[in-house]
């Protein structure tokens, strides 16, 4: 079966986010007030062939651990549909 995968990679809680801070500072200049807690991450999307969703998830999580994220500073959230 083919599954659609979205891996959200985001900085771990407590890790400073210079991009998020810059965006947060820029928003009021454009008239968007009251925004706080901006965090920038990335989403990696792909399709994967697997026998079932659990196997797909297992494989994707291994990809996250070994390659897609740096566990020192990043967390991932995997969505499989």
């Amino acid at each position: 079966m083919k599954f659609e995968v979205a891996v959200e990679v985001r900085l771990r809680e407590g890790i400073a986010d210079p991009q998020g801070q810059t965006i947060e500072r820029a928003l009021p200049a454009l008239g968007f007030d009251g925004v706080e807690g901006v965090r920038v991450g990335k989403v990696i999307r792909f399709e994967i062939e697997a026998s079932d969703a659990a196997n797909a998830r297992g494989e994707v999580e291994e990809m996250c651990d070994r390659f897609l994220a740096n566990p020192v500073i990043e967390d991932t959230e995997v969505t499989i549909t």
Binding site: L11, A16, P18, Q19, T22, N70, I73
Partner: peptide, 17 residues
Amino acid sequence: LTEAGLLPGALQKNAGN
């Protein structure tokens, strides 16, 4: 070397970008 796990820590974007 940090990505390879040969050194501790990580290098992220400079403060101030």
